[in-house]
Nucleic acid binder design. Structure first.
Lengths: 161, 161
DNA sequence: CTTGACCTTCCCCCAAGGGGCAAGGTTTAA
DNA sequence: TTAAACCTTGCCCCTTGGGGGAAGGTCAAG
């Protein structure tokens, strides 16, 4: 009877690893299943559906946290459609940004490779690939280069010591 | 006399955080600097150059491990150009793959959003965004009772990551 | 009885640092 | 001189989505 799947069988049907299933359980994406007498996890067929839903949503680029929220909303009784719609719109925008960044990056690499062809005869200082090229690389990175590098601790007094 | 920079000053000049500098030191990208009597790290100007090199390479999409290797080769006496060239070519190829994946992903999301417009009047079961769409993943029939299901499921993990 | 496949929990690992803490050093204004 | 303000030190945990593996329990077949 397919009413009792062990974790490996569920994994096979849903196309994931047992590790991933335990991870999903730990992070609240899958509910803890019942256990057999030998402490093995025992799943019903609904777990397969839930896992496929998760895979599908993840395939759309949603994070596990977002998927968990969607499921929670659904459990709460009201359909998560509006929420999902908003999520997907944000994802699409984010994707566009990421695509633009990658295109820029590819262009930079191509330029670097092309520059190498030109300088390979002249012998640059150390490495024209990295040291040459256009002036600044705006490493869309972490710390905003303002004046204070990290002056966050304004209000609170220092640690009582 | 910029012969002795403290970590914050170096960070400011190189456009990174002190945290990142300590991290680079810990992972072997920066050599451990000399210390002042009060155990403060003291850097020379060459550290600024090294850090800028690192940022530039990272801006080209190289990982810190790759950057560390490049630096090691350079320290070894011979210029890392050929190595870097190969690395960049691989990066460019990888980037092309990633771009293709992202384009597919964006298309899927767009389709999902478009499908929503069509079904919003008809009221789907729970969420047409995720549950609708093309079917796939044939469940490999019955789980064999007796043959080992130990197989490498190392396929594509989640969507395009 | 003994493999061997499977299951359990537990802990550490990846990239590239960020956040926070306690303790202590330095600098500056009152 | 002293207190505030800031800087540095090391340390530990957090992030994503699990992978790898150890140590031990369980179940079927040979």
């Amino acid at each position: 009877m397919t009413g009792g799947l062990k974790i490996g069988e569920l994994a096979l049907r849903a196309g994931v690893t047992p590790k991933a299933i335990r991870f999903y359980e730990r992070t609240g994406i899958l509910p803890p299943p019942r256990r057999a007498a030998n402490r093995y996890r025992v799943y019903g067929d609904e777990a397969v559906d839930r896992l496929r839903f998760v895979r599908r949503a993840a395939g759309l680029g949603l994070t596990l946290a977002e998927i968990r929220d969607i499921i929670a909303i659904r459990q709460g009784g009201r359909p998560p459609c509006a929420h999902v719609h908003e999520l997907l719109r944000a994802k699409a925008a984010e994707l566009d940004r990421k695509l633009a960044d990658l295109l820029i990056l590819r262009k930079r690499i191509r330029q670097s490779l092309a520059a190498w062809k030109r300088t390979r005869t002249t012998g640059a200082a150390v490495c024209p690939h990295i040291e040459g090229g256009p002036k600044r690389v705006s490493t869309a990175g972490t710390a905003g280069r303002g004046r204070p590098l990290k002056s966050k601790r304004g209000g609170a007094p220092l640690g009582a010591r």
